[in-house]
Write a protein that binds this DNA or RNA. Structure first.
Ligand SMILES: [Zn+2]
Ligand SMILES: [Zn+2]
Ligand SMILES: [Zn+2]
Ligand SMILES: [Zn+2]
Lengths: 154, 154
DNA sequence: TTGCAGATGGTACTTTGTGTCAATTGGTTA
DNA sequence: TAACCAATTGACACAAAGTACCATCTGCAA
């Protein structure tokens, strides 16, 4: 693990404590474990993927709690809920503005580093009655694994 | 209905025939009805919304066919599958490059006209092993209806 | 017209996510 | 430190979104 990653995880733990205190939320072991697990991953896992990964180590962790906690984290801005090509929510501990590429075949999501274009201005007005909060650029394509899988079928 | 909309629907019907012939797909009444219904709508409906709207007029239309057909249409590039804040697929007969705003509360999706920024260049290389096909900019915010709903609660 | 590959409809099923509520626990107070 | 209480959790049932299967039906080409 790189120093940067270690620092990122520590910063997230700090942020968890700060935000929970500010919002009057309890610092439960489940919340710590979930945020830690998410912060260590770069693959934007789904709720069930996190549940599967944690139920072994966190005894008696329930699926309901995982879904609930991720929703709570997203609501207080501790993590991001990102949408993939597939219709299921994925989560990201990196809340800085960055963009994603999502595989049209398997739904895998990766960060786009060095996108090679200038970010558009965020118009905070309402073009069609909407009040705009934020935006995200999502690229679609084929992940390395699915490129292999389809190369010997098509 | 405007002339432009009438022309758009006619063009989509034409495109359906062309693409189906090219791909060896049958031109069934269900496919015609589904594409027509989608082309007439601007609200990026979900599969179930289209099913609900059509089962009255198209006798015996099955939910399975609606899901299957929309998937097929998206695969041949006749329509687009767009992702909203909520984890369910929405569909768009307008396949020209345009962008969307999605309500964080109810998941409604609208087209963004005159976004007020220059489109970034599409890097067709693979930054992290992905092969890039396309991109979309998705804004998030509150739709007019949800602005009203939340104004007298918060 | 006929034949058949491909499409449909119905059912059952899986996956993803939410509602409910009794039991538990974090965090504060005394 | 002990006790209290609101917040949280886990278990279960449930709802919504989407898929697999297969017998029947049909578009369309010969
Ligand atoms: Zn993939
Ligand atoms: Zn990310
Ligand atoms: Zn809304
Ligand atoms: Zn659109």
């Amino acid at each position: 693990m790189t120093d940067a990653k270690r620092a990122f995880i520590a910063r997230k733990e700090q942020e968890l404590e700060t935000l929970c205190r500010a919002q009057g939320l309890s610092l439960t072991p489940q919340r710590r474990a979930l945020l830690d697990a998410l912060a260590r991953r770069k693959d934007h896992p789904t709720a069930d993927q996190l549940y599967d990964a944690l139920q072994k180590t966190v005894k008696g962790l329930s699926r309901t709690t995982v879904y609930r906690t991720l929703e709570t984290f997203a609501n207080i801005g501790l993590i991001l809920k990102v949408s993939s090509q597939q219709a299921k929510a994925r989560f990201d501990a990196d809340t800085s503005r960055h963009h994603h590429i999502s595989c049209v075949q398997c739904g895998a999501v990766a960060d786009l580093i060095d996108p090679g274009f200038d970010l558009p201005e965020l118009p905070d007005k309402h073009p069609s009655g909407f009040r705009i909060y934020d935006y995200a650029i999502t690229f679609t394509g084929l992940c390395p694994r699915c490129q292999q899988d389809s190369s010997h079928t098509a």
